[in-house]
């Protein structure tokens, strides 16, 4: 997809909570041997997907000096909304001091709700309906105690202010693409606390099929090849999948490593590819080309290509994601279950 008027990233910010639990600590509790990643982040007892969204959005606004009154949409992608009914965006509008003449909605598409929000804001900006909009991917994802997902379900988020390229952006969206089928690999019913999944079915027919379809169709349609890109970021539910999908699609380790955070912070769900993108933007140079392929169970995949501009240096996220990674501290399973509300009180 290419809008009539070109759209890009005006500013960005990312946030990961301070707490880290090592997979070995979880494995020790449940007597498992192999673990999919080294460690994962988890939120403090006073954090949720909304406060994480706030942190990321605040950094995006302050670092880019985007005029608050020109931001006229806040779309939050998350599968861990604090409320089932009551939008998170309304709190953000008042907390960030944005104009109250604003569109706001919460998006859900498993792990790709954040990139879906970018698609939606792009359309509004490109059409001229609004000047700037915030698209956020944020989650404090839940894994049932003992389940495979408990090793990876993590917390984090990133926020992107989009505007028309003519406003001056740090990265232009050259094109995007979306691919969706009914593939029930992972889900959570309305009243349930924890999601369920169909084990290995989440792999080939879900994750790999959708990302490869989305990215391949995109490259065919717009004439890109893997070697065009300095960076590639793929959805990262664990450490293995993104590396394998990169290989299948013909991307190298060097292209994906800067955007691959799951081995350390886990799968931040709606935040995952976007936190990866933030980390890439923290180091990218003008003219670098970035490919992003998200994945949301259920299932679908969004592909984007960004071209970095000269403005990147002056609008890099402050603090950068690395500052949050640097401050992380490891806690054991007992702190984790308490902070995550896994103890029935």
């Amino acid at each position: 997809m290419k809008p009539d008027k070109k759209v890009g990233i005006y500013g960005y910010g990312a946030y990961v909570p301070r707490y880290l639990i090592e997979n070995s600590s979880i494995a020790g509790v449940w007597g498992k041997l192999a673990t999919p990643i080294k460690s994962k982040s988890f939120p403090s007892i006073d954090e949720d997907s909304l406060t994480i969204a706030y942190e990321a959005a605040r950094i995006a606004i302050e670092s880019s000096k985007a005029p608050r009154d020109r931001i006229r949409a806040v779309f939050i992608g998350s599968e861990s909304k604090p409320y089932a009914v009551k939008p998170s965006g309304t709190v953000l509008v008042d907390a960030l001091g944005l104009s109250n003449k604003i569109l706001s909605a919460d998006f859900e598409f498993a792990c790709k709700a954040g990139t879906e929000a970018i698609q939606a804001v792009s359309g509004l900006v490109a059409s001229g309906m609004i000047d700037m909009g915030l698209a956020i991917g944020t989650d404090t994802s839940q894994g049932r105690p003992g389940d495979e997902l408990e090793y990876t379900a993590a917390a984090g988020g990133a926020a992107f202010i989009l505007s028309r390229v003519s406003e001056g952006v740090i990265a232009e969206i050259e094109a995007s693409h979306s691919y969706v089928t009914d593939t029930p690999d992972f889900w959570r019913r309305s009243e349930e606390k924890y999601p369920r999944h169909l084990y290995r079915f989440t792999g080939e027919p879900a994750y790999f099929h959708h990302i490869t379809s989305s990215v391949t169709q995109f490259m065919e349609e717009y004439g890109y090849k893997p070697s065009d890109f300095k960076y590639a970021i793929f959805h990262q539910p664990n450490a293995k999948f993104p590396q394998r999908v990169a290989k299948i699609l013909g991307f190298t380790r060097e292209q994906i490593m800067p955007g691959l955070l799951s081995p350390i912070i886990g799968n931040t769900y709606s935040g995952a590819t976007l936190v990866g993108l933030s980390n890439v933007l923290d180091e990218a140079q003008p003219d670098d080309l970035i490919l992003l392929g998200s994945f949301g169970s259920g299932a679908g995949s969004d592909t984007f290509v960004f071209r970095v501009t000269d403005l990147i240096e002056e609008r890099r996220a402050r603090p950068p994601l690395k500052s949050f990674l640097k401050r992380m501290v490891t806690r054991d399973y007992s702190t984790y279950v308490r902070y995550r509300g896994k103890i029935d009180m």
């Binding site: 006073d46 954090e47 406060t51 706030y54 605040r58 907390a95």
Partner: peptide, 11 residues
Amino acid sequence: GMEVEATFRKL
């Protein structure tokens, strides 16, 4: 004397 900064959390 420790330096602190404001953040946004659940009360």
